[in-house]
């Protein structure tokens, strides 16, 4: 059998597919695709479950956890991200990529990669909340409707990436 695990969809075709999904998202739901929004809902419902009295009085949580409102998990972004998970698994299974691996440069250790992954995740966690979304929810969904916010995000995230790339090159090349 031909080994497909290093094969990828044509990038323009993959982009076109994602673009179509974005159009459907705006057409049906009136909002764009998201990534970090689902994480936010998970954190909100987790904190609410642990300490409801705190959550209903803290600004960040209050609007989502008042008595009588439906669970933060019963939301468009959560169902969308559940779909993303299923879609990714279908695709990875098709290409034979559904195995445990650590993705990294051969020049760094697994430990270094894991620490960097956690640190990167922390930065995205804070950034996505401060900036009202991540690559999907802020930038791509913004660009889809010519929103100024999407282009500010685009310039800052990719600009920041190129700005800092030199200092972290040993992680990748």
């Amino acid at each position: 059998m031909e080994n497909k695990r290093n094969k990828y969809m044509n990038p323009y075709l993959a982009g076109f597919l994602i673009g179509l999904m974005m159009i459907f998202a705006y057409y049906y739901a009136g909002e764009g695709l998201g990534g970090s929004g689902a994480f936010k809902k998970v954190v909100i419902s987790g904190v609410d479950a642990v300490n409801h009295d705190y959550a209903k009085n803290a600004t960040y949580f209050a609007s989502s956890v008042q008595e009588g409102s439906s669970s933060p998990l019963n939301s468009w972004l959560i169902f969308e991200v559940l779909g993303v998970i299923v879609g990714a698994i279908i695709s990875a299974a098709y290409f034979g990529r559904l195995t445990f691996k650590i993705g990294k440069s051969p020049n760094i250790t697994n430990k270094t990669r894991i620490i960097a992954a956690i640190a990167g995740g922390l930065l995205w966690g804070v950034g996505s909340q401060l900036g009202r979304g991540c690559t999907s929810g802020l930038i791509m969904s913004g660009m889809a409707v010519n929103a100024f916010s999407g282009y500010v995000g685009l310039a800052a995230v990719f600009g920041g990436g190129y700005l800092f790339a030199y200092f972290f090159r040993k992680l990748w090349i």
């Binding site: 922390l122 950034g127 900036g131 999407g150 500010v152 995230v157 190129y162």
Partner: peptide, 27 residues
């Protein structure tokens, strides 16, 4: 989407750093 340019600009740089360090974005 509403634009809040100051936090988005600062957060974008934080996320850009997160991209270089962590190698992913949330999605």
């Amino acid at each position: 989407p509403s634009t809040f340019w100051i936090p988005t600009l600062i957060a974008g740089l934080v996320m850009g750093l997160g991209f270089i360090v962590g190698g992913f974005c949330p999605g």
